[in-house]
């Protein structure tokens, strides 16, 4: 049946929105609104909050770092003192009191004025430091060498001198003494004596700081 609405438009009943479109509009509105709310929450709450936390953490880190730098500077200073202390110990312990060794040796040569065992006069005396070693510890503390003449050409006088050197406190710092080099020597001038025994000795010192090492071992 064909229906014709003869009422003027202003009196006609309004047509309702189609269901599909209505549902689509409502669903769309809900979706967009939810998304807006979610975005607002995430952006203005969460993100801002996290950024504030990061700012505070950075400030805390800057402060802690300043203090940590102070702590490291203190440790650097302490390390520098320790290094200087080690260097000073090395300087002090790598020292041979040459005046003591020479004093002791001169007493050996003089032998209290007693000439019966030996009587010598020297041409030269030299003291040399140990050679610098590139690897490991030094094996000696240097050398003492001397040479001269013995009053007689009897070899026993030189062995007596060698024994006296070895028995004296002077020898405590020595590692070893060479075998005597000896030769009868004659002069052709008007001075006396006209003959003497020419000799020389080399002594090797113990490594520097051996006394300190011994004390530590005890």
């Amino acid at each position: 049946m064909i229906q014709i609405n003869l009422l003027p438009p202003e009196y006609r009943k309004a047509e309702s929105t189609p269901i599909a479109r209505f549902v689509a509009i409502i669903a769309g509105a809900v979706l967009v609104t939810s998304a807006l709310v979610a975005y607002g929450y995430v952006h203005y709450n969460e993100l801002r909050g996290v950024r504030e936390v990061r700012g505070a953490t950075e400030a805390e880190f800057t402060n802690k770092k300043l203090q940590a730098d102070i702590s490291k500077s203190l440790q650097t200073e302490i390390n520098a003192y320790e290094a200087r202390r080690k260097a000073i110990t090395k300087v002090a312990s790598s020292r041979v009191l040459q005046s003591r060794k020479l004093d002791e040796l001169l007493d050996v040569f003089h032998n209290g004025g007693d000439k019966s065992a030996y009587f010598v006069w020297l041409k030269s005396l030299s003291v040399k430091p140990p050679r610098a070693s590139r690897r490991g510890k030094q094996t000696t503390g240097g050398t003492i060498s001397f040479g001269g003449f013995s009053e007689t050409i009897e070899f026993s006088r030189i062995t007596n001198l060698r024994e006296a050197v070895q028995k004296d406190t002077f020898y405590e710092d020595m590692q070893g003494i060479s075998s005597p080099v000896f030769k009868a020597h004659f002069w052709d001038d008007d001075k006396l004596p006209r003959s003497a025994g020419k000799f020389s000795f080399d002594l090797t010192l113990k490594p520097l700081g051996w006394r300190r090492s011994n004390k530590k071992k005890k």
Partner: peptide, 30 residues
């Protein structure tokens, strides 16, 4: 209607995703 709703919500969804990524980065730095 449906297209408009999808576009709008999609745009907002992208922004949310971007902010969430930034939040992750910030948390990593913290």
């Amino acid at each position: 209607t449906i297209s408009v709703a999808v576009v709008l919500s999609g745009g907002l969804g992208f922004l949310i995703w971007s902010d969430l990524k930034t939040i992750d980065e910030e948390e990593g730095k913290i």
